[in-house]
Design a protein around this nucleic acid. Structure first.
Lengths: 201, 201, 201, 201
DNA sequence: CATGAATGAGTATTCATTCAT
DNA sequence: AATGAATGAATACTCATTCAT
């Protein structure tokens, strides 16, 4: 009976710290973010921070996972709302890529992550994201191409997801200098996805 | 007549420092690489290091560029030897990807770079590489598909190059845990390349 | 109730660090005084030093101010004990100058300051001292020469205070080589003071 | 026969180095002046610099002496042109002080010296200057007050010269914040000089 | 559990000076 | 005598982490 409130408090604390980390990162940039800044922003003592996270790395790792979750559910929501199952692959892919680009450009934290991917534990963000997109893509395929060979599918999706994610990241990193438009990028990427997955029979 | 040996010396020093940087990086990992370590490894005083590079960042940047060059020429050589122009796209792509993977796995420095891409100025490596592959791909296309629409080509190559590079990098980062074989990865990637570039007419 | 001990601790720390600075300065000379030396001498970690002073300069500045305070109160005490208001200007000036010289020669820190005025933020010492002597002189004048024109007074005091301070400092710097006795110096200086301030009516 | 050109070259070199030091000091400020900067400015190798001056200190010392000489001759010239012997003490003192202030404010090097007197071997400048003013004042007194007691004179001049020099320096250091005008300062200082030296009989 | 004062290892960089050529 | 490449000691300051209260 005592444990539940404790866990709740604990969860709230973790929450608070992660939000503080996100906020500090977005405001000051990774370079200028210290554990003490984070504790301050969270309105918590530095000692407490270390009660909940063994070290800075763990904090960053947890944040990346959390962001991964947010992105996932945001995508899921959107895709569901869109009733994506009813559209053809090209349309869905194109739409989701554009949505993703927009989401990143809107969020200062996402911005900072993209700019400091050097120095952030990006795997912690990408690994779950990879799994998520896999889990999202599979039902789609079950629906549209019932007899699609699953083993092949997994490998192809692995490749496509990473390809798309990184190309978008890199595009956004060097954006001001690039001539390609977002629309064109999305177009090519979704073409690529379709081309690899759904070759004309 | 006197100046040439000077320039030579200077070049040698730069060379030596870059090699020392590479070695230190490969041995101690980026985390534990200090400018003093590098100078030591180069058998040179720390003061000299700073005579040739304004700061640590410049050293790392230069190293990345140098590696990019090495990779480029290594690929070019290989591709030329292979007379790649005579082979179909699928074969060339597949071969070069496998060659690249092997090259990375053979080179401890490449290994370290892949593992610490966090913290390394990866753009300095990727930007030229991107250009290089573009320059390598274009003649191939001129030869094989004379009537290929060039504007599309550039965008597609941009996407494919980044997609391939990153997917390979990511594959190698998480390799021990992955079930996919290198051959399969290469296969899928080259499929993807062909699918996007050379749709069956 | 809890905060007072904290503030006390803080004050003690500042105290300790300033004393350590003074001691290190006196012992090793400014040239050879590092922040780490100071922290060591204070029996405190270098990190703590920087928790209380933003940088070395601030430490030195604070020390100068502190010394200025010490000198001021020492003078004030002495002058009060002496009931200087009851004596004529020449006597008071002469006495205080001799007292100052003696105080400096007795204090190894003062010695070091005089020898390394190069490299010390002397203004931080002189500005308040100037003000102090001004504040000390004015009541005296109000008392002795009620109808003394105040505006003139301020300018003259500014000149006299700086003149006296510096001449004494310079005298002490080059003392071993000088033939003039302290008494003579004090005599001339007090003569000068009287001559400028209190011309025979 | 060979030695004379050598000495000449040597002299020129010293000259050049001192001028380079002065220029570098004036342009970059003491803080940012390195021996290498100086050698560069002089158009001479750093090795040569050390052929003529054992270390940086010696260079600075020499510069201070040289400046002292310049100031002396500049004053002497001016005073002579003015036929100062024919004027009364107050006028001469007042004029020379104003001239000095102006000379300093006109010369960027003088400016820098005043601002970095911390860190410069000021004694090297002041000692000769003190002697110079002494030597300049004595004939004046011989002329005007033949029966002036010489021993007293020396002590008084010592005090007055230092007083005046420092008060002016300090005034110029804190000038922007001061309300007193240059004229007033000169006025008080010359009053002080007259008051101490030439009491109304 | 919370606090936050204290810790101290760790590091990039400067610059006066030397000495082989 | 001149050169200038090479030297390397020396130092201020940061920040993740601990632990006594």
């Amino acid at each position: 009976m005592r444990k539940i409130p404790k866990q709740k408090r604990s969860r709230e604390m973790v929450e608070r710290l992660l939000e503080a980390t996100a906020a500090t990162l977005a405001e000051r940039g990774l370079e200028d973010t210290t554990t003490n800044h984070i504790a301050d922003t969270a309105g918590v003592s530095i000692g407490s921070l270390y009660q909940y996270f063994p070290d800075k790395e763990a904090l960053l790792d947890a944040l990346m996972e959390r962001i991964s979750d947010k992105i996932s559910s945001s995508f899921r929501e959107h895709a569901t709302k869109l009733e994506y199952v009813n559209f053809d692959l090209k349309t869905v892919a194109n739409y989701l890529i554009l949505y993703g680009i927009d989401a990143i450009k809107t969020d200062p934290l996402a911005q900072e992550i993209i700019n400091s991917w050097n120095s952030l534990p990006l795997e912690k963000l990408l690994d779950p994201l990879e799994k998520f997109f896999l889990s999202m893509a599979q039902p789609y395929f079950v629906h549209h191409y019932q007899d699609y060979p699953i083993q092949h599918l997994e490998g192809k999706l692995y490749v496509l997801i990473n390809s798309t994610l990184f190309t978008v990241v890199r595009y956004l990193q060097s954006e001001p200098n690039t001539t390609m438009s977002e629309r064109k990028l999305a177009h090519i990427l979704s073409d690529m996805i379709v081309a690899l997955l759904a070759p004309q029979p």
